[in-house]
């Protein structure tokens, strides 16, 4: 019990003292996960919208696949990206294995299905409401898809944040493709795993608190945006 209390106190001291090591780890985590979510959104939102308004053979199968991929285990993604990026792999010539870029790739792969599947659902629901009106005004399907992305933007923010939560919280993929190299590819989750196994609980706990606070802060922000937007735009 006292061990836990001490760990908390020490963790707090680390956070309050703005320990440079800790700051580096937090900054890298944010850089990697934000980049991944940005790239994933650029791919997944148009993809989700296209599937939502599109009519093509195999659509239902694609939706099932996408929904299933939301539960993709991070270690499996890590392994696949590792194989892709390793020296002998098809993208080995890029030479980005064990760099933050590789971690961005892995997290992007992990997050694309989540954002695509959830945005497909939201946009398809909106499409049901807008369908006749937009077609009556002469909108083509691609232009209707863009209109729907814009009109569901406040719901999509929540989805993108869910993607960020997933990216920032996973260990397996970044551990495999990043290698948890101190000062280079060590992020919050891999550091927590390592420090815990080494027995340095204050640092692990401090990072845990920072991680939780960041996710909480972002979600509070999203809720606020949504609330204000609904009040303003209906």
């Amino acid at each position: 019990m006292s061990g836990l209390g001490e760990a908390f106190a020490a963790a707090w001291a680390l956070i309050a003292g703005v320990e440079p090591g800790l700051v580096g780890i937090v900054t890298l985590s944010l850089q990697v996960s934000l980049s991944a979510v940005l790239i994933a959104s650029a791919i997944a939102l148009p993809l989700g919208a296209a599937i939502a308004v599109g009519r093509f053979p195999g659509r239902q199968a694609l939706i099932v696949l996408l929904n299933a991929l939301m539960g993709l285990p991070p270690v499996v993604v890590g392994l696949l990206v590792y194989l892709l990026l390793s020296r002998a792999g098809p993208l080995g010539s890029l030479g980005i294995l064990f760099t933050p870029s590789a971690m961005v790739v892995a997290q992007t792969v992990l997050v694309v299905p989540i954002i695509a599947a959830l945005s497909r659902q939201v946009i398809e629901d909106a499409w049901r409401e807008y369908d006749e009106q937009l077609r009556s005004l002469g909108a083509s399907r691609p232009s209707a898809a863009l209109t729907l992305i814009w009109d569901t933007r406040f719901s999509l923010v929540t989805i993108v944040l869910a993607g960020f939560g997933r990216a920032a919280a996973e260990v397996g993929a970044v551990m495999i493709v990043g290698g948890n190299i101190d000062g280079v590819t060590r992020v919050m989750t891999t550091a927590i795993a390592l420090e815990t196994s080494k027995g340095d609980l204050p640092l692990a706990l401090g990072l845990g608190i920072v991680l939780l606070s960041l996710v909480l802060l972002l979600n509070a922000l999203a809720a606020l945006i949504r609330e204000l937007a609904t009040r303003r735009y209906g």
Partner: peptide, 21 residues
């Protein structure tokens, strides 16, 4: 339509949307 579908933008932008299309 019986129940008009309004886009999440200003009244003016709703009219402009149709004209642009």
């Amino acid at each position: 339509f019986q129940r008009p579908v309004m886009l999440r933008r200003s009244a003016l932008a709703n009219v402009i949307y149709g004209l642009k299309l």
